[in-house]
Amino acid sequence: MKDAFGLSAIYWIVHRELKLTMRRKSDAITPLLFFVIVTSLFPLSVGTDVEMLRRIAPGVLWVTALLATMLSLPRLFEQDYADGTLEQLALSPAPLSAMVVGKVVAYWLMTGLPLALLAPLLALQFYLPTTSILILATTLLIGTPVLALIGSIGASLTLGLRGGGVLVALLVLPLYVPVLIFGTGAVDAAASGLGATANVSLLTAMLLVAGFFSPMATTAALRIALE
């Protein structure tokens, strides 16, 4: 009964968030456009040296995806906090951590997932071979939820602060480094014949650890922000 209650809370939060996003489409489209434009600037500025483009492609796509995720991070809890929805959620009998999970899932569905799906298309500009493109998309698919989970901790800690947006970046970017290293490393490892399995496994492990701890940390930070 208790579990089913938590699950239904997650479902309703995701449902509500997606509905809200449909009403304000620009919020969801901005990070995607940022991703498309910035990655396209590299081939234009660096030139058409195929070897060079191939070498920088995983890094460029990953760093841009990471920045695009961070672009909308301050908004994760801000509006709910300002209009009082967050305190109503905190006072609901459903566990607040379930609500947090729902918010992060919805956030990933609206930013991380589209980014990972767009990446293969953008990778074509960098002359990446098909296998590398597939590996890149896989790592983004596993890595972007980790970014969202870690980001939610930063967003909740800076809730209600002035200049919270910049602070989120300072808090969260160092924590993104391991994800970035193993995400970009996968493509190189595969190209050099080592295989990408180790990197993908490590990313998956990070996802599991973040998925377990991040909602707890976020919930605690939200409760403090609501005091």
């Binding site: 809370a9 809200l20 009403r23 209009d83």
Partner: peptide
């Protein structure tokens, strides 16, 4: 703060609050 979402209608707001509290 009223706990309402600006872009939802009155009925949608009330229904979504009610569903969230099961």
């Amino acid at each position: 703060p009223l706990g309402l979402k600006d872009s939802l209608s009155a009925t949608e707001n009330l229904q979504s609050i009610a569903s969230l509290v099961n």
